[in-house]
């Protein structure tokens, strides 16, 4: 008799889930995610070469044109090929978030290790700062910075690094705290290994899976935030191909060439999903908690 009892049902499912996790087969979805990221990386590095036409070439006689043989995604308000601009737009979508992810990886890990391992005053100060920064709306701060200091892509990247480090710090601190009570740490301390070496060479390798997985999420989040800033018109000058900027500039073309808006929007979502999926997958792969999720 099938029990509708949720608790019993869960018990059965738990056994099955555990068995599944142990098999460690990489699902096709993850392969797809990696393929997407590879594609975006290629477009970011070689955009101008891959694009069928120059992203800035204007064809003012055929503005706002729907898709055609010459322009697979049509043209925008200046007659530029939308497909080429989408490909070229991968550059600003990729490199800013890459820098942000890398910088906050380094800084976040250092601060997280420090806070988690040393504890005491360092931890208190760092966590106060993290608590304060953690729930700040980063886009609003970017908007205010753009409105006062001036709108610039790399300035936005710099500000985002400052805003993202607390997030990394918190995650790494948590992971470090879990490692600290472990026997190997005690052993290293007894052997007289200097503190910084314990943090970097003993603890960090065990924390790194979380760190790497987290970085993927940071990448996806920064991509989305930067695109949002471009959407608002603050952050890049008008001519540069950029997915967020294209989404807002081409909103006026929704009736003549909707693809000019749909394509860049889809690219943002696709890239973010791919990175989020990879991050999640890495996390489950590299930690023992994979069975429970």
């Amino acid at each position: 008799m099938t029990s509708a009892d949720p608790v019993l049902l869960l018990g059965e499912q738990r056994l099955r889930a555990g068995a599944r996790a142990r098999r460690r087969v990489v699902s096709p979805v993850i392969w797809l995610a990696f393929a997407v990221m590879a594609g975006v990386l290629l477009m970011a590095l070689f955009g101008a070469l891959l694009a069928p036409q120059s992203p800035s070439a204007q064809h003012l006689a055929i503005v706002d044109a729907p898709p055609s043989g010459a322009h697979w995604l049509g043209t925008d308000a200046l007659g530029r090929d939308v497909l080429s601009r989408v490909i070229a737009g991968a550059r600003t979508a990729f490199f800013g978030p890459l820098v942000i992810a890398a910088a906050s990886f380094v800084l976040g890990n250092l601060l997280g290790l420090l806070a988690g391992y040393r504890g005491g005053l360092a931890d208190a100060v760092i966590m106060r700062w993290v608590d304060f920064m953690w729930s700040l709306p980063s886009l609003v701060i970017l908007v205010v910075v753009a409105g006062t200091v001036g709108s610039s892509y790399w300035l936005a990247v710099a500000v985002l690094i400052v805003l993202t480090v607390p997030f990394d710090t918190r995650v790494i601190r948590g992971a470090t705290l879990e490692q600290v009570p472990r026997p190997y740490v005690e052993a290293a301390k007894t052997l007289g290994v200097p503190r910084w070496k314990i943090m970097l060479f003993h603890i960090w390798p065990n924390v790194s899976p979380v760190a790497v997985a987290n970085t993927c999420l940071v990448f996806a989040g920064s991509l989305v935030t930067l695109a949002g800033l471009e959407f608002l018109g603050l952050g890049l000058p008008p001519g540069i191909p950029d997915w967020g900027l294209m989404l807002s500039q081409n909103e006026a073309l929704l009736f003549t060439n909707p693809l000019a808006t749909i394509a860049p929007g889809a690219m943002i979502v696709l890239t973010a999903i791919a990175m989020n999926l990879i991050g999640d997958w890495l996390y489950e792969l590299l930690t023992s908690r994979g069975a429970g999720r």
Partner: peptide
């Protein structure tokens, strides 16, 4: 997962 990766402005323009 899709929702997490879809920023509000993309969702907004798409829904619009």
């Amino acid at each position: 997962m899709l929702g997490l990766s879809t920023p509000a402005f993309v969702a907004g323009v798409a829904l619009l």
